[in-house]
Amino acid sequence: MHTAVVIFPGSNCDRDVIHAVSEITGSVVVPVWHKDTAIPTSTDLVIIPGGFSYGDYLRCGAMAARSPIMASVKKHASQGKLVLGICNGFQILTESKLLPGAMLANKTLTFICKQCFLKVEKTDIPFTLKYKNDQIVQFPIAHHEGLYFLPQDSLREIEQNGQVVFRYCTSSGEISEDGNSNGSLNNIAGIVNRQGNVLGLMPHPERASERIMGGTDGALMWNSIKTWIDREGA
């Protein structure tokens, strides 16, 4: 398994993702600088990590979405290879139209960093195949703009297509306003494109990958990806 992590000047979860992925899967992880124009050809998985890419001054992820490296990320995705955007990385994927939707400020109008419960609603994609359907997992969130928004008709569309992978829920798995810390429409925490190879989510799986960090639910995501790549590659 070969992983490339795209690093923008304001990325701050890049080192965390590199640590988690290499610790859990033993994958070769290559950092790719935002001014670069190419992703190594052997790359199976591209991760766009969390942070504040270019300071997030206009809209989160807006400028990063237009940086030179994103053309290669799009090309990588168009070949059916895997792209994962976490937090700011999810914002960048929506801004670059690889995923539908946009992020608004949290309903609290504050930055929120806390553990959240998520329901895994789609387990037939490379990112989640090790999870059980409707499994409840715990990942932390840490963002100011994470309220997932789509106009009603498009929202209906992604729901009908089964593109919602993660939904915020309560500890008992209830999809309610209670578990929905940032106010996302339909409690959406993570979605996948129609082809199933580009996933974006606001919560941080890399922060839930080691027991000493308080939980290992996120490690399953790395193991899912590894399993899929090993299988596809073989």
């Binding site: 608004l104 109008l109 309220l147």
Partner: peptide, 13 residues
């Protein structure tokens, strides 16, 4: 400005 129909939390506050 945010479109009509898009939740404007800041405006509301």
């Amino acid at each position: 400005y945010l479109k009509e129909g898009v939740l404007d939390t800041q405006g509301k506050t």
